[in-house]
Amino acid sequence: MKLHNETAEIFVPDGRPVDAALRRITHLGIGAHQDDLEFMAFHGILACYDSDRHWFGGVTCTNGGGSARTGPYAKFTDAQMMAVRRREQNAAAVVGRYGVMIQLDYPSREVKCAAATALRDDLRAILAATRPEIVYTHNPADKHDTHVGVVVAALQALRALPRAQRPARVWGCEIWRNLDWLPDAEKVVMDVSAHPNLAAALNGVFDSQIAGGKRYDVATQGRRQANATFFESHATDQATQLIFGMDLTPLVADETRDIVAHVTGLIDQFREDVKQKLTKRLGGGSSRLAAPDTGR
């Protein structure tokens, strides 16, 4: 498989030949940065961890050069930080028993460029080589521009595949903006309660981020626990850790479907839900709250 960047890397933790490692992938995560896969696609990692049939494959699109840094990493150059982050991502692949870990090494500016096509083409080649059943990537309502760049490139690559080669499910996951606002009927609810030790180990691999000033490990676990507790107000918790996803499968199944309209349609559903609840409580009248009776 030919990738655009000479510095791109394909790492197979168990040493299998690359072609064989790619063919066995059933769950594929496509993330922007080193650590995104572990935070957003843990459902896929968990599904494959103890399986003889399922294998998780990871794709990290950027080089990690723009990372925030402080503490022991404060004086690291971009080149040094890129090397550290690449090692951390490969270490996570070993801990998580990934079938393959691909690092494409793009600068963020290229991922965010609407005119650039190399990332899309690389992702299409990877998807054709792996033929996964499920793809995890960023959700299009994420507030991080690089994450949006990756999910757009991923959708373009998926739509470019022959229909018979497109995965059965494509889910956009949470990082820089959670998805609790999605109507419950539209949520992909991923129970990741099992193996909390594995989740902690994977999140903790990324010392350059944790010691470097960002407690992503704590925040990720906290979000999953909050999702589980606040998911249903009138029932006891059925899970201790949940990840919410946005179903992007309709956008892949029908390449004529407008991506912006699909996402803003979900936002409109959220808006209408809020409006309906408030209007009902206000008696269907004016949205202006009545002034309290002071007795004067």
Rank of each mutant, 00 (worst) to 15 (best):
A261E: 13
P196F: 08
H144Y: 04
S67F: 02
V192K: 01
L22D: 04
N90V: 07
P183F: 00
G295F: 15
G283W: 13
V59G: 09
Q241N: 07
S67P: 01
H27V: 03
A92G: 07
L202R: 05
R288I: 15
A141V: 04
G222C: 02
R24S: 08
I102N: 01
V148Y: 06
R177N: 15
A164V: 09
G285W: 00
A118L: 04
T279N: 12
A8N: 02
A125S: 13
K143D: 07
L242G: 06
E133T: 12
F231M: 12
Q241W: 09
Q209I: 05
F76C: 11
A168K: 14
A129H: 10
P132Y: 02
Q89C: 06
Q80D: 14
N197I: 00
R215C: 03
I126L: 15
Q238R: 09
V260A: 11
A226H: 07
G96K: 09
D14G: 01
H138M: 13
V111I: 15
H262C: 09
I45V: 15
R166T: 06
T137D: 07
A253S: 08
Q276Y: 07
V148S: 03
R69L: 10
H43V: 00
Q238N: 06
R97V: 08
L37K: 00
L198N: 03
G65P: 08
R131T: 07
L179H: 03
A235R: 15
M81I: 14
T130F: 14
V188N: 03
P167T: 05
L123H: 10
G71M: 07
V218G: 00
G99S: 10
Q80A: 13
V188G: 01
V252A: 06
G96F: 03
D78M: 13
A91Y: 09
A114Q: 04
A211K: 10
V252F: 03
Q89H: 11
Q241P: 00
R177W: 02
A83E: 14
S287W: 10
A74M: 05
L289A: 13
T26A: 06
H54V: 03
M81W: 04
E272M: 10
V150E: 06
P140Q: 01
M190D: 06
Q276G: 00
H147K: 05
M246G: 11
C113R: 14
D247N: 13
G15A: 11
H138I: 08
A261D: 14
R69S: 14
V252S: 02
G213H: 05
G245N: 05
G57W: 02
G15E: 08
S193P: 12
L266M: 10
T146K: 04
A261W: 02
A164Y: 03
F11P: 00
